[in-house]
C-alpha cells in the first residue's frame, strides 16, 4: 500500500501549493499581458486585411461600422 511519512505528506502539500501558485501567476501574466498582445495582433490583421484595402482611415472605418451596426439593430425583422 502507498504510505508516506509526515515529512513526505508535507513535502507533497508544499509542492502542490507551489504548483497552484505558479499556475496562478502564469494565468495572471497571460491575462494581463499576452491577451492584450494577441488582441493587438488581431486588430492589426483586421486593419491590414479589411480596412486599409477599402482605402479608409481607422477612424472613418470605426464610424461607418458603428453606423452599420446601429442600422442593423434598428432594422425591422421581416418574417
Amino acid at each position: 500500500m502507498f504510505r508516506l511519512s509526515d515529512k513526505g505528506w508535507l513535502r507533497l502539500a508544499i509542492l502542490t501549493g507551489a504548483l497552484l501558485v505558479i499556475t496562478n501567476l502564469v494565468m495572471n501574466v497571460g491575462e494581463e499581458y499576452l491577451r492584450e498582445r494577441f488582441e493587438g495582433m488581431r486588430r492589426k490583421a483586421y486593419f491590414e486585411n479589411v480596412i486599409s484595402r477599402k482605402g479608409l482611415s481607422l477612424k472613418e472605418a470605426r464610424h461607418w461600422r458603428s453606423v452599420e451596426d446601429r442600422e442593423n439593430q434598428e432594422a425591422p425583422v421581416i418574417k
Partner: peptide, 14 residues
C-alpha cells in the same frame, strides 16, 4: 517579476 513583466501589479495576485 510577473508584475514587472506585465507592467501591472494585478499580475502578482495569487
Amino acid at each position: 517579476l510577473s508584475a514587472a513583466y506585465s507592467d501591472s501589479a494585478g499580475a502578482a495576485g495569487f
